[in-house]
């Protein structure tokens, strides 16, 4: 069996990637809470974020890797709001039939489109962004690369910034009002369409940021977003649909479960592959026994 050192190292690692998972899931849950739409293109936003950072840093500008993240966020903000206006607004205008099915299909369609667009433009081969900083940090048995630490740190900063934004600014409060009761918010002078747009844009840019943050750690390929998006679904269901706090804690929890769970399977290649299955098991258990998630409101 594995020793304590190994487990501690795994736990530290899980904590770090958990922050990145959380960042992506927070975007997803924000979109859900305001628009009541599950974004099936979230993984592709993540993927586009990774590619944007890669191209900004290596091919186009030779920017500092950290600036690449910034650009990825801007690009996704634009892409997200455009998509929202063109394809999601009709849902809230009552202009589409069977809106629930439409919402799944249209975001799924976008994911299909983006994946193949990037495949056509960039090809199927992996690209890896240059690292933020070489070296790493060693504490006792744990060594974590600087890239991972920086990525996790920035993810935390972004999430805290988002929470402050939601709590303290007028726009943030307006978004919360829309998420709780659309019609009441509209009556009290908030434009719910604008809030939808902002929420979707921010949600997309958070996914883009997490893709960009991970680009130096794992290489990007056109379907790199598939597993992270599934993981985000698991996280938001675990944390409670629409709960930002839940997504944060859920993200870290899934990070820990995956890294520690890997220790349960002796065969390392299997352990790596089946990491993803833990999420599925958690997903089913949560839906069966606590459908509102850890921090969701009971329906």
């Amino acid at each position: 069996m594995y020793g304590a050192d190994y487990l501690i190292a795994q736990a530290a690692n899980g904590l770090v990637v958990g922050c990145l998972y959380a960042l992506m899931a927070v975007g997803l849950t924000l979109i859900f809470s305001v628009l009541k739409v599950i974004n099936f293109a979230h993984g592709e936003f993540y993927m586009v974020g990774g590619y944007t950072a890669y191209y900004m840093v290596t091919v186009l500008g030779g920017l500092h890797p950290l600036l690449g993240i910034f650009f990825a966020m801007i690009v996704l903000l634009g892409l997200g709001s455009l998509f929202e206006v063109a394809f999601l607004r009709p849902i809230h205008l009552g202009a589409v039939n069977r809106p629930a099915e439409y919402a799944i299909l249209i975001t799924f369609g976008l994911s299909f489109f983006l994946q193949n667009l990037v495949l056509s433009l960039a090809g199927p081969f992996p690209h890896r962004s240059p690292s933020f900083m070489s070296g790493g940090l060693t504490v006792g048995p744990v060594t974590i690369s600087a890239d991972r630490l920086i990525a996790a740190g920035l993810a935390l900063v972004l999430m805290i910034a988002l929470m402050l934004f939601i709590r303290a600014t007028w726009t943030g409060k307006a978004m919360r009002a829309v998420s709780q009761d659309r019609d009441a918010a509209a009556v009290s002078g908030i434009n719910p369409f604008k809030m939808n747009n902002i929420a979707f844009g921010i949600g997309a840019s958070l996914a883009g940021a997490s893709g960009a943050l991970i680009a130096p750690i794992f290489a990007v390929v056109p379907d790199v977003g598939v597993l992270p998006s599934l993981r985000s679904f698991v996280i938001v269901v675990l944390g409670g649909m629409g709960s930002v706090k839940g997504a944060l804690i859920g993200g870290v929890a899934i990070g820990l479960v995956e890294s520690l769970g890997a220790a349960l399977i002796p065969d390392p290649s299997r352990a790596l592959a089946y990491r993803e299955l833990y999420g599925l098991v958690i997903f089913v258990l949560v839906l069966l026994f606590r459908p509102q998630g850890l921090f969701g409101e009971k329906q």
């Binding site: 394809f87 299909l105 193949n116 056509s120």
Partner: peptide, 16 residues
């Protein structure tokens, strides 16, 4: 892969 790009776009347009 471009035909899948077209397919995806067609899907979205038809849906909308």
């Amino acid at each position: 892969a471009w035909r899948l790009v077209v397919f995806g776009a067609l899907l979205m347009i038809v849906l909308r």
